[in-house]
Nucleic acid binder design. Structure first.
Length: 586
RNA sequence: GGGCGCAUAGUGUAGUGGAUAUCACGCUGGCCUUCUAAGCCGGCAACCGGGGUUCGAAUCCCCGUGUGCCCGCCA
């Protein structure tokens, strides 16, 4: 809701006004809403639904209500009737008082939670491509936004340290020579290893994974060997699990190095095998047998029948135990969820849209087990113009390559604009711009919408991008530095004497919507909303910057400086909440 | 065959029942001896089709079309 401050004020007199009109206030409080265009007013009440009840033209109802509100409201908020709406517009000086004198604080009234956000959890079998990285970027933004509100957040990576994928990798590293790998990939028209990544193990070892997938296609002997080690891993065999770990850990380290370039870090890593070893997977499987949905296949495999639970398709069975008694990925996921609820009060999972059915099955099973369900954020895939990205087939854009390209683009722009920087400074700016721009280009799109990756878009640093926001922040920093050098003497603000122009008024209103913007993104798990807000905040600051000089003839306009400083700090805070790097100059 | 997502200017997007449909790229015309022009100001251009619910639908429901994902005792 737009401006909590204003809404509370309207609510405080809402009852009196509506009672005077013979209406029960509680039934109509929900009518207070954000206008579509926030330049028209701050909050409004549409009167169309009242027309029927009051048997009156909405325009006239709005006029009557506006009159009543005006009589009680005082000068802090202007109330006007327009086109059947009651429009509320806060007085700019009231906003100035709230921000600069009363030091209004964001998120004071919100309940703080302990939240575990599980994101990325990509199988450690190769480098991040742009598609997989959408998960990490989204998840990390949710972590940051929740922290901005004041929630206590655990950023969690679930490591697939057992089963088929790492099994294949491990087998490949034991059984295929480097020469063979190169030869196999070459004869299958797969790209060579880019020399710049020759020391990065995720890029090196993924080639073994790819080669093994080609070799095992029609080779019964390899399949048998794989089955043996995979089975052992699923039984919790320590030796095999260690062998798997030796195979994937250098890859995982490489992947985390890539994410770290994008400012993404985790608080904890949990291994899938943990729940086999500690026995909770077995316990879960026993409990599931008591479910009304329980069924058994001819070979003893166990499942829940979900046809009555909104699941349909070729198969409506959710298998949680194989015929040989071993567990499946989803079963371990159930045990994992039980564990997660032990360490936090709220769970968020970030998953690709291919996991929609899986996630539904897990939710039904959790309900059968009397375990609460997590919130799940699904995102659509990023395609290439040539089609779907696939690590196995090598049809990918690596995040590492995108980062390098983005840095080079930023360096090129810098050399056109700023010739007086040394190389260190230049590289630091380029890295920050690249990382921020990549993150923002993914975050600004609503998670459920898929998009096609295009280099041209990914490397665009114009408006509607992170550098646009960072640039506004850098401008405010530049002013800050200049004012400091002029040694301003502290002078109290005399609100009554301040002149507030239109762009300043707009900026103040945008500032006070910060809270609502973060809350909306957090409650809906959609960082793209907050991206829009940050673009608006930057635009508002740019207009203020144009119209309201802070330093003129060596004199400092104290009020404008205060507004600029507040904006600078808020831009900084908002950048952090999205994982953009707010530079002081660029 | 079935299920689930998505469909808004040439392109990409915002919007979850209300005012003249947002922002950007693009095309086009302006603004740097003035706090960073990665900026600012003006113009062009859009709700997939058909029904329904409603005082009011881009938004909710139904049918269709297109597109993505899924339907494994894989992860």
């Amino acid at each position: 809701m737009f401006m909590k401050l204003l809404k509370n004020k309207i609510k405080s007199i809402f009852g009196t006004v509506f009672e005077n009109q013979g209406l029960e206030p509680k039934e109509f409080e929900h009518l207070i809403q954000t206008p579509r265009d926030t330049n028209v007013c701050d909050l409004c009440i549409p009167c169309f639904s009242l027309a029927k009840i009051m048997k009156e033209n909405p325009k006239i109802i709005a006029e009557n209500l506006a009159k009543e509100f005006n009589e009680i409201m005082g000068t802090e908020v202007n109330v006007e009737a327009l086109n059947g709406y009651v429009n509320f517009l806060s007085d700019s000086k009231w906003l100035v008082k709230k921000i600069f004198v009363d030091n209004y604080c964001f998120f004071e009234q919100i309940n703080k939670n302990k939240i575990l956000i599980e994101h990325t959890s990509a199988n450690p079998n190769g480098p991040f491509h742009v598609g997989r990285a959408r998960n990490a970027i989204l998840g990390d933004a949710l972590v940051r936004l929740n922290r901005d509100i004041g929630n206590d957040v655990i950023a969690e990576y679930y490591v697939d340290d057992m089963g088929k994928q790492v099994g294949i990798l491990s087998w490949a590293l034991e059984n295929i020579s480097s020469e063979e790998v190169n030869q196999i990939l070459k004869s299958n028209n797969m790209d060579d290893l880019n020399p710049i990544w020759k020391n990065k193990q995720d890029h090196v070892r993924v080639r073994w994974y790819q080669a093994a997938n080609i070799l095992r296609k029609d080779n019964q002997k390899i399949e048998e060997e794989l089955t043996e080690i995979i089975n052992k891993s699923e039984e919790g065999d320590e030796e095999v699990l260690q062998q798997f770990k030796n195979a994937f850990q250098p890859i995982l380290d490489g992947m985390l190095e890539t994410l770290s370039e994008l400012g993404i870090k985790y608080d904890s890593f949990t291994n899938e095998s943990k729940f086999i070893i500690d026995g909770t997977v077995n316990e879960i499987m026993k409990r599931l047998e008591k479910s009304n949905l329980y069924g058994e296949a001819e070979n003893g495999a166990k499942f829940l029948e979900l046809s009555g639970k909104g699941v349909s398709g070729k198969s409506t069975k959710f298998f949680f135990q194989r015929g040989d008694g071993s567990s499946l990925y989803a079963t371990r996921d159930l045990a994992y969820h039980q564990w997660k609820w032990g360490v936090s009060e709220k769970l968020i999972n970030v998953l690709g849209e291919d996991h929609r059915l899986q996630s539904k099955q897990v939710s039904v099973a959790l309900t059968e087990l009397n375990i609460k369900c997590p919130e799940v954020v699904f995102y659509a895939f990023i395609k290439l113009p040539e089609g779907k990205m696939s690590t196995r087939r090598g049809n990918v854009v690596f995040m590492d390559d995108l980062i390098i390209e983005a840095q080079e683009m930023a360096l090129k722009i810098l050399s056109e604009r700023k010739s007086n920087l040394n190389d260190d400074k230049r590289l630091k700016i380029a890295k920050s711009v690249a990382s921020s721009a990549i993150r923002f280009n993914i975050l600004k799109v609503s998670p459920e919408k898929g998009f096609t990756f295009k280099w041209e878009d990914a490397l665009s640093f114009d408006a509607d991008s992170a550098p646009f926001i960072m640039y506004s922040h850098a401008r405010s920093c530049s002013i800050h530095e200049k004012v400091k050098s002029l040694e301003l003497k502290e002078v109290d603000l005399e609100i009554s004497e301040i002149e507030i122009n239109e762009s300043t008024s707009r900026l103040l209103r945008t500032i006070l919507r910060y809270e609502d913007a973060v809350e909306k993104s957090v409650s809906e798990n959609k960082p793209n909303h907050f991206c829009s807000y940050m673009l608006e905040l930057s635009t508002s600051y740019n207009l203020f910057y144009r119209d309201s000089p802070i330093i003129k003839d060596e004199q400092i306009n104290k009020f404008n400086y205060n507004v600029s400083e507040y904006s600078r700090k808020l831009l900084f805070r908002g950048c952090n909440a999205l994982g953009l790097i707010p530079l002081e100059s660029m």
